[in-house]
Each structure stands twice: as structure tokens, then as C-alpha cells.
Design a protein around this nucleic acid. Structure first.
Lengths: 150, 150
DNA sequence: ATCATTGCAAATGGTTTGCAAGACC
DNA sequence: GGTCTTGCAAACCATTTGCAATGAT
């Protein structure tokens, strides 16, 4: 979906790179780099976290992996390249998937302050995952919002 | 816009807290904690960065300040509580404002995977600010996206 | 043979926290 | 006066980076 790639992307395929991609594709949890690290370690007991980060960066630049800069600090990674959105769990930080056709596309705003060239947008839904929904309904209070927010 | 607040929020008003809020309200740049720190330092030469962070946290919990978890890692803060959205500059990380009525409200998705209770959403536009637009058009290539993305 | 890539460890950078002294109500 | 808050510094945590050794083409 990215039309132009600015720099040359490494193409060499190492064992680590291949396994990282395979393991990521086999997970549906949108793992953090650290979660992926431990998953990959089961197959390559000597991989280092730095290798995970470096390869994720390469794979993102190759367009084989999506980096999700979700709420909550840690980046998450997605091997599913199809267009879809995500729901962030306000209770535990878990991510869920939202089908693309459930979301009406937004028009680019005609003007901004100051005047940006607007080229795209990001949408992230939020709410509570099945587990946190139960916890939330019993002990804690769930914040609800009256309208859209940013 | 938040209906329930879960914990007791400190109410004591210190000089630092007041000045931090005043300075933030006087800025339109959506400063990072560090930028705000230096701005506040001009008035309170002895404030520490920790105090900035602690007070921003309190002010956010009091509902007097919005924390913006934008792309790019660093949190940014907004003293403007009115409903509006933001544009992120892919070139330099600057933030601009998008008027609320330029954005058609989204419906909450009926179902997600797994089944979340969806309570809200976040929208962030992206593009290039006036300064980076010039730079981008000359030297570097600007990535454009065919459709919405998340 | 060349040069990207690895593992390791140290460095980075934003944010948080422990603590004793000081300020608010 | 009691407790919240401050300044300072150290701690934290996710991520990045320098380097000599290793691996892919």
C-alpha cells in the first residue's frame, strides 16, 4: 500500500529473518518485540533481542510486516497485511482485530492548522477484551466516552 | 467527556501546578514534557522534569489537560479540551490541529476478533507540515498511501 | 571475497520513582 | 500538623547501537 520506498532495503535472507517472519505469521496476538523474542527463542535458542528488533525493522521496510504503534508504549507487530483495524484493551493492553468493512473510510480534512498536506490516517478503537470485560464489570469501573476523541 | 473517574485525584494547587497549566495553555504546539519543562523553567528556574511529569499526570486525571499518545514515542500534551483531531508530520513529528467537523464520526464496529466491548476510538491524521512539505518535494520522496490504514 | 548480519553488552532516551526537605490547607 | 508535593538523582524499560565474529551470496 506504500507507493514509494525511499531507501534500499536489505534483501539477504538469513535463518533468523525467515524464522522470525514464520513465527510472527503463526501468531495472531500482535506480539510485542519481546513476546516475539521468546517465541522465536523456542526455535532459535541463541537469538538476541537486538536481532529481533533489527529484523522486524527490515521486514517492515520490505513491506512484509506491519508495525503497530498502539496506545501503551510498546510497539506491536502484525504479519497480516490485509487492511484491517485494531481494538486496544484499556484493561490489559491486548489488541483485537476489526474488519475493514466495519469502518467507514474517512475523507482527508480540507484544511488543518497549520496547513498540512494530509496523506493518510490511523484509526484505533478501544474497549475491553473478553477477560477484562468481566473484571471490569465486577470490581473496577469502566470509563465510557460520549463521543469520538483523539 | 469521561463519565466515571476511578480514583481520587489530588486537588491541592501548588505554584508549580498552576504555572505548568498556564504555560501549557499559552502554547499551541502540543509540547512534549521536555519542551514544556524548558518553557516552565523560564518562569520557575528550579522546576525539575519529574515535577512536570507528575503534574501533567495529575492535570490529565483532573481532566484539565489532554495527553496525546501520538506516533513517534514521546507523549504530547494539549491544554485545549475542545473536541478536535491531530495531524502528525511524517517529516519532523510536529502536530497540527484538525477541526472536529472535518471528520465524519465513526460507528463502533459491531464485532471484533476476539469479541471486545468497543467504547471509543482514536483518529490521527498524518502528512507533512508546511516546512517539511517543501523539503519533501525537493530532496526526499514522500510516501503516499492508497487508502486508510491503521 | 565481500559486506550484511549476528550475539553480546553497553548506551540511549523518555518516563517513573524513592527519599528527605519543603509547601499547602 | 498532617499530608501532599518538590527537587534531585537513581532506576526503569523499550529500543538502539558499537563491535568483533560469523554467514549469505
Amino acid at each position: 500500500m506504500i507507493n514509494k520506498i525511499n531507501a534500499t532495503v536489505p534483501r539477504r535472507m538469513t535463518k533468523q529473518r525467515r524464522v522470525i517472519l514464520e513465527v510472527l505469521r503463526g501468531m495472531q496476538n500482535h506480539p510485542t518485540a519481546d513476546e516475539l523474542f521468546w517465541a522465536v527463542r523456542k526455535r532459535l535458542p541463541k537469538v538476541s533481542l537486538g536481532t529481533i528488533y533489527r529484523n522486524l525493522d527490515v521486514l517492515v521496510r520490505q513491506g512484509l510486516v506491519r508495525r503497530l504503534d498502539t496506545t501503551g508504549g510498546q510497539a506491536r507487530f502484525d504479519g497480516d497485511l490485509s487492511l484491517h483495524y485494531h481494538v486496544y484493551c484499556l484493561g490489559c493492553g491486548a489488541l483485537g482485530d476489526v474488519n475493514a468493512d466495519a469502518v467507514h473510510p474517512l475523507r482527508m480534512p480540507a484544511s488543518t492548522t497549520p496547513e498540512f498536506v494530509v496523506t493518510g490516517y490511523t484509526v484505533e478503537f478501544e474497549g475491553y477484551c473478553p477477560a477484562c470485560r468481566e473484571r471490569g464489570n465486577s470490581n473496577e469501573e469502566i470509563e465510557t466516552r460520549e463521543g469520538p476523541w483523539s
